[in-house]
């Protein structure tokens, strides 16, 4: 098995240069702490907030269809980016309803 990914900085590279950051699942849900007033944002029950966080942190659907996912170009420029890929074929896929192309989310360290 081998495929390539398109790094927004470096272009198409072998998948071995990247590490996987999981499917796109949105930012971390806000944490609810009893007494902080934050629970209003996620519902009054802290258990619901914990459950939401738990699902966010642990659940992956693993559907064989194109998905947006995060990759880190560790052996190259060192940026995180998101891209669309079909896990059934391992080919990059056209973005499903999102803006085209990967976007860069951070720079490289210097060593």
């Amino acid at each position: 098995m081998t495929f390539r990914l398109t790094c927004p900085v470096c272009g198409k590279r072998d998948v071995y240069e990247f590490t996987y950051g999981g499917p796109e699942r949105g930012p971390r849900p806000a944490e609810a702490d009893p007494g902080s007033g934050l629970e209003a944002a996620v519902g009054s029950d802290p258990a619901v907030a914990a459950e939401a966080h738990f699902r966010w942190a642990q659940f992956r659907m693993n559907r064989p269809e194109p998905q947006e996912e995060w990759w880190h170009h560790g052996a190259g420029c060192g940026v995180w980016f998101s891209t669309w890929r079909d896990p059934a074929t391992n080919r990059e896929a056209p973005p499903g309803g999102a803006e085209a192309g990967g976007h860069e989310a951070g720079g490289r360290d210097s060593s």
């Binding site: 590490t19 950051g21 949105g26 930012p27 995060w70 880190h72 560790g74 060192g78 940026v79 995180w80 989310a105 951070g106 720079g107 490289r108 360290d109 210097s110 060593s111």
Partner: peptide, 24 residues
């Protein structure tokens, strides 16, 4: 480490810079 920091701030658009000086 750099990967970790960048990953966990990837939605925030924060302005910070990191240099790995491990070998330096």
């Amino acid at each position: 480490t750099v990967e970790w920091l960048r990953f966990h701030t990837r939605y925030d658009g924060w302005d910070y810079n990191l240099v790995n000086l491990t070998d330096a």
